[in-house]
Design a protein around this nucleic acid. Structure first.
Lengths: 159, 159
DNA sequence: CACGATTATGTTATAGTATCACAAAAAAAT
DNA sequence: ATTTTTTTGTGATACTATAACATAATCGTG
């Protein structure tokens, strides 16, 4: 995976604002649910959310060591598991990578458009896709549980 | 992953017939495309196609050693890469596993319903899903390339 | 506060998935 | 027959993820 490009996908968009409000949202969610957003978990969330492209667990791990000594991989996986449970982070199965969720929805069913050039990810909550799947599932007698919908292609910027 | 159950998902369905016609189809495809379905590739295809549940690369590897000595993992990955290029095998990203494609279509865009109980996989070619994605992609200015659509849930038998 | 229960983190080891690099062999093209 | 291309062998290694058990921090309650 290439290093982050210097500029953000949308110049007009100040990612620090997103980050701040994401963290506030995270605090609120955890408070409501009576679970703990510890320093470590918060830090992992910050790292994931600060990258506009998906990060692998070991990339997160690297960024976790400040000047200090390296932690064990499981540290990161545990934090990610927690964050995914709270719907604050998504895992992209096609990339073995993780991305923060900037949508404050209750339902964490999502679809992803992943640019194969710049690696930016657009997250959707598409009723259209879910309905289509639901219809096909019904026809097949299949009881849907979770969907993994990841589309690779070119974002508008790279196309 | 549990061992294969003794019986096939549909009792009425003779999997050996599928297997035979799949292999014939594979031969035809490779002949048409001027690529070689070598003994090794064919054997991997047979292994994948003989299992009605997805197999990991290392499971395929185990079944590849007859009484002979174990081959290197890359052997299997190379064969799988070839078979996927020919559209004869699909990789399921959510499982890190592989399944044979019994559909003889030209377009290898597919969706999968994966039973979390019995691990059977139903492969779809759903125009509905593809259209839904295409519409959302258009709205997002995203040029679709390949889709990874894997739904986990319960098949009619397990529900 | 003391206590036990629960939750989170540390530590070490290991399992599971996938690819690289280079050599040898087999098949195809000339 | 020789060159070229493709396939396979071989050994090493990278990358992704979890198990098992110990320690530490936090919480709830008396």
């Amino acid at each position: 995976m290439p290093p982050d490009p210097a500029s953000l996908p949308e110049a007009s968009h100040d990612h620090r604002v997103c980050l701040t409000s994401l963290l506030e949202h995270a605090e609120a969610v955890c408070q409501r649910r009576q679970v703990r957003l510890t320093q470590q978990r918060r830090q992992v969330l910050e790292i994931v959310a600060s990258s506009h492209i998906p990060l692998g667990a070991y990339e997160i791990l690297e960024r976790l060591d400040g000047a200090k000594k390296r932690k064990a991989p499981i540290t990161v996986y545990r934090a990610l598991d927690f964050l995914m449970e709270q719907g604050l982070v998504h895992r992209l199965a096609s990339l073995n990578a993780f991305i923060a969720c900037f949508h404050e929805s209750v339902d964490h069913t999502a679809q992803f458009f992943i640019c194969r050039e710049c690696h930016t990810v657009a997250e959707l909550h598409s009723a259209r896709v879910t309905h289509a799947l639901r219809k096909d599932a019904k026809a097949a007698g299949f009881r849907m549980d979770e969907q993994t919908v990841e589309v690779s292609g070119l974002c508008s910027h790279c196309a």
